[in-house]
Design a protein around this nucleic acid. Structure first.
Lengths: 187, 187
DNA sequence: TCATCTTGTCCACTATAGAAGACGATCACC
DNA sequence: GGTGATCGTCTTCTATAGTGGACAAGATGA
């Protein structure tokens, strides 16, 4: 019989829901755009049906993605370990600010490992985190976090829950790099 | 409704057949390995059914391929233009022999554009073209083609139909590079 | 508080995916 | 010229994919 029990249905279900919600579409809207009934989309997202190639083609078309890409994303979403070597890192060449996406792709909860060099200021506009729940946890060094009118002075180990969206600024007042975790989830 | 009429069924059908035949498997053998009935595989290959994600998962598993890769290959097989820049070229660093795969991926009929430097001999074992129908068409230069016991002397424009499998040798007796087309199809 | 809109799920019903086996073809070997 | 092999397709039947519409649960607003 089959060698690798490789059922793609849960991965597809998860990916489908992520793609739809990332676009802010309801079941009805995706049904409209794809030509697939919303009842069926609901079933697929709940792993109660195994979509045919035809239906998958319509859905990926609605997302503007080639089917193979949708499937590849689905497979990656199945990976539950994100090795450090594979985690995408972004570095600002001017300030030396680095940000590493720790969480496996497409997690509901995302963890960012940030390093902020001494004396550097990083602005963070309110628009960047609307509809998100966020916390900032300082692992080492010092961090002044300006949230709208108020400023929080964080020391090692402190954890801050962000309030309603406001223009923010990260600032490292110390002499050592500040290392902190940003944890965020959509709501 | 859907924007891009993007039906993956024909592409999947074509790719499935190619993967199966490339492994020399019959419908029954693939059915055995994948756990999908041979009747169903037959239908899928003839575009008479749209396989579910579950069935696609079993089939790709039998081939030892991730589903997304199988689909990506299927999508590429749909491309009907192979731009010269995308055609894979292989060059033998010792002799300067070059071979370019002209045809779009997975065509039933494959065209190779070969350039053989002056004085170079390239052996071609019988085992390399069993079950293939082949023709050799000399575009420019000269080519001596040794087919088992007999040798054909080809001049510009000549076209040779290969007989039953035999050990062969390509040889360019001229002073200019020989450029020829190898056209082959499975039988 | 009562409409009204939107959300996702549930309920018939129909179309078809998928399995198991029969069937006619082709080929190899006595 | 039989006689089994094996090939792919066709046939029958069942499970389920897929549709359209009803439904209950929030959300919004007058």
């Amino acid at each position: 019989m089959q060698q690798t029990e490789n059922d793609p249905v849960p991965a597809i279900a998860m990916r489908l829901k992520i793609e739809r919600e990332a676009r802010g579409w309801s079941l009805a809207e995706l049904a409209e755009r794809s030509g697939v009934s919303k009842a069926m989309i609901s079933k697929i997202e709940r792993c109660e049906a195994s979509p045919t190639a035809t239906v998958l083609g319509r859905l990926s078309g609605a997302f503007g993605l080639p089917l193979s890409v949708l499937l590849a994303l689905a497979e990656r979403a199945q990976e539950r370990v994100a090795l450090q070597a594979e985690q995408p890192v972004w570095t600002d060449p001017e300030t030396g600010y680095t940000r590493r996406a720790v969480s496996p792709p497409n997690s509901l909860l995302e963890l960012l490992d940030v390093s902020l060099p001494a004396g550097v200021r990083v602005p963070y506009p309110a628009s960047a985190f609307a509809f998100q729940h966020q916390q900032i946890w300082l692992l080492s060094g010092r961090l002044d976090f300006q949230e709208g009118p108020v400023t929080h002075h964080l020391a090692e180990g402190d954890c801050l829950l962000l309030g309603p969206p406001a223009d923010c600024v990260f600032f490292n007042p110390g002499k050592e790099p500040a290392r902190y975790v940003v944890a965020l989830t959509r709501r």
